[in-house]
Computed example of a mutant assay.
Amino acid sequence: MTIRAVFLAHTAAPSGAELATLRLASALSADRLAEVALIYTEDGPMVERTRARGIDTHVLRGAFDSRAMTIGSGPLRLLAGALALLRLGWALGAHPATRQADVLVAESTKALVMGAVAARRARIPLVWQVHDRIAADYFGRLPALVVALLGRVMAQGFLANSRATLATLRTGRRPAEVAYPGIELGALPDRGAQRDPAETVVAVLGRLAPWKGQDVLLRAIAATKIRPRRVLLIGGTFFDEEAFRTELDRLAAELALPVTSTGHVDDPRPYLCDADILVHCSVLPEPFGQVVVEGMHAGCAVIASRPGGPEEIVRPGRDGLLVSGGDEPALTAALDSLIGDPELRTRLAAAGRGRAADFDITVTARSVATFLGRIVEHRGAAHV
């Protein structure tokens, strides 16, 4: 029997978790592993992108701002946001797509709260697909504890985007599995050979946010023995982080770096195929690191930050390099070794392309479909 799964997202902004969810839903549908619907609680770019994939897509409108209940919100705003989530959850439980589903999958902490109410009303199990490490260094000590306990109480199963993320959860004896945010291994634009040292192009891909460390990268590049010919900052700002982009522009000018900022792009592949080196430079442990796999698949030589998910992707010296997050001298040294050695770049990039194939979204989709099927079967057996 093909299960019917509804995925719930609290935002329709095109950030990493939402894009990963779209790829997973597409693979589940394309391979007929599950009947899939996506419900967003606001309108936004992801709504049309989801519909364009032929996926059953709904927008549940309500009095909730996706920017509410952010880290650092005051108690009144948190309370108002929580009440809005509970109201939307109750409405979601009566939504036709939810009523027809076998399982509800919450794609964020906010979606978890809504989903708990909705799943109870619809009498279906709730799975929490966790895209963030539930840790004090990201959420703060008390919020991380609260979120972990919410998951433990509300979810009947857990899908984590890495072993690093799974280690931060309180799953008890409930089913849990790692489901890497796979990539779509489609055709890529043609790319040339790795460039000579003075012509090197370095790229960083991802949302422009302080914890992503783009400022660390700029300072590390400024200290390299041979400066690259071009530095690509690929990504836009969401969630009120525009001030950081202004700071990056100022820093690039101050360091006299040849930086090109693309802003948000729907398809970064042409930029990645024009880059020799892709740097992932998060200063906090990354839950997974989709951009690392994307850079490998595009044929870039990759440098990534540890600890966290990138340690599960990159095999140091074999298909990429790892440095400690926030360590500017170490990052400069890694850049020096790659910029100055096109043959090393070529070798790592070739191995990286092979490694990227290990994270094909179709592999993830099959494991997720099997996991959701077990959750539904267990729930059915419990009610016999």
Score class of each variant (00 low, 15 high):
Met1Ser: 11
Ile3Cys: 08
Ala5Ile: 02
Ala9Trp: 00
Thr11Gly: 02
Thr11Leu: 08
Ala17Val: 08
Leu24Glu: 04
Asp31Thr: 14
Arg32Phe: 06
Ala34Ile: 09
Glu35Ile: 08
Tyr40Gly: 01
Leu60Cys: 06
Ala63Lys: 10
Ala68Arg: 11
Ala68Pro: 01
Leu85Phe: 08
Leu88Glu: 02
Gly89Tyr: 11
Leu92His: 07
Ala94Asn: 10
Ala94Met: 06
His95Pro: 08
Thr98Trp: 00
Arg99His: 04
Gln100Met: 07
Asp102Thr: 12
Val105His: 12
Leu112Arg: 09
Gly115Arg: 08
Ala116Ser: 14
Asp132Ala: 04
Asp137Gly: 11
Gly140Lys: 10
Arg141Thr: 09
Leu142Ser: 06
Leu145Cys: 03
Ala148Cys: 07
Leu150Gln: 15
Leu150Trp: 15
Arg152Phe: 14
Met154Glu: 05
Asn161Leu: 03
Arg163Gly: 12
Arg163Cys: 02
Thr165Val: 12
Arg173Met: 08
Val178Glu: 00
Val178Arg: 13
Ala179Ile: 15
Pro181Cys: 07
Gly182Gln: 04
Leu188Asn: 07
Arg191Ser: 13
Gln194Phe: 08
Arg195His: 12
Ala198His: 12
Ala203Lys: 02
Ala203Cys: 12
Ala203Glu: 00
Val204Met: 12
Gln214Trp: 06
Ile221Thr: 04
Ala223Val: 00
Ile226Tyr: 00
Ile226Asp: 00
Ala243Trp: 15
Arg250Thr: 12
Leu251Ala: 05
Leu257Ala: 06
Thr260Ser: 13
Ser261Glu: 11
Gly263Leu: 11
Gly263Lys: 14
Leu272Gly: 04
Val293Cys: 09
Met296Lys: 03
His297Trp: 15
Ala301Gly: 11
Ser305Lys: 09
Arg306Val: 01
Pro307Trp: 09
Gly309Arg: 05
Gly309Lys: 03
Pro310Phe: 05
Glu312Ile: 03
Ile313Met: 01
Val314Asp: 01
Val314Arg: 01
Gly317Trp: 00
Arg318Asp: 01
Ser324Phe: 04
Leu331Ile: 04
Ala334Gln: 05
Asp336Glu: 07
Asp336Gln: 06
Gly340Phe: 05
Glu343Met: 07
Ala351Gln: 07
Ala356Cys: 03
Ala356Val: 04
Thr364Asp: 02
Val368Lys: 09
Phe371Gln: 02
Leu372Asp: 06
Leu372Ser: 13
His378Asp: 14
Gly380Arg: 15
His383Ile: 12
